[in-house]
């Protein structure tokens, strides 16, 4: 037997998850199948305590857009044979708020440093806009933005900001000269 102390590790993961109120933590390949599995898991869970339908829709929406961003825009996106796209990243959903009445979705993935300035400028642009500005930006992007072959068009991030009414909480952590770790936290509050 090796000396690997899995007990401590498993126990500490368990405690971390409870302490942070994380209901789902996943690190690895994000595919369409994963997206479907996680969203239906979350839906079933929310049904089990009769979550309000507006909240349910918002959580579902944010989850789909975040997971699709990971699967389509993460650095190591691979095109699977007949299976669409997959990217690697971390995906977390948890409860927040005084009585844990709200939700947040946290994602992280590696991106090339050269892509950081453009993404950061886009995120800042979204964060500086009010409701009407975001609506116009979404309409403009839908009209003019050519849907890349991956189906991006930057609509996902604008939509997340619109649906939640919250600023996009993002960060870039430099890994090395080539790559950074991009994190995004989206809060879905009961309003």
């Amino acid at each position: 037997m090796d000396k690997f102390d899995y007990k401590e590790l498993v126990y500490s993961f368990h405690k971390e998850m409870l302490a942070n109120n994380f209901t789902l933590v996943y690190e690895g390949e994000i595919t369409h199948q994963i997206t479907k599995a996680f969203t239906s898991l979350a839906e079933n869970k929310m049904d089990s305590y009769s979550e309000d339908s507006t909240m349910k829709k918002k959580v579902f929406h944010v989850m789909v857009e975040c997971l699709q961003n990971l699967s389509k825009h993460a650095e190591d996106v691979r095109i699977l044979k007949n299976k669409g796209y997959s990217g690697n990243g971390i995906f977390i959903i948890g409860r927040v708020g005084q009585n844990n009445e709200d939700y947040h979705v946290l994602t992280g993935n590696v991106i090339e440093n050269s892509r950081v300035p453009e993404l950061e400028a886009f995120l800042d642009k979204i964060n500086q806009m009010n409701k009407d500005g975001l609506k116009e930006l979404y309409k403009k992007q839908m009209r003019e933005g050519t849907l890349s072959d991956k189906g991006g068009a930057g609509l996902g991030l604008i939509d997340i900001a619109r649906k939640t009414g919250e600023k996009l909480d993002y960060n870039f952590i430099k890994i090395d000269d080539e790559r950074s770790f991009y994190t995004l936290r989206t809060k879905i509050s009961r309003k």
Partner: peptide
Amino acid sequence: DYFNTASSK
């Protein structure tokens, strides 16, 4: 009931 942003286009 629901459409994602890629479908919106």
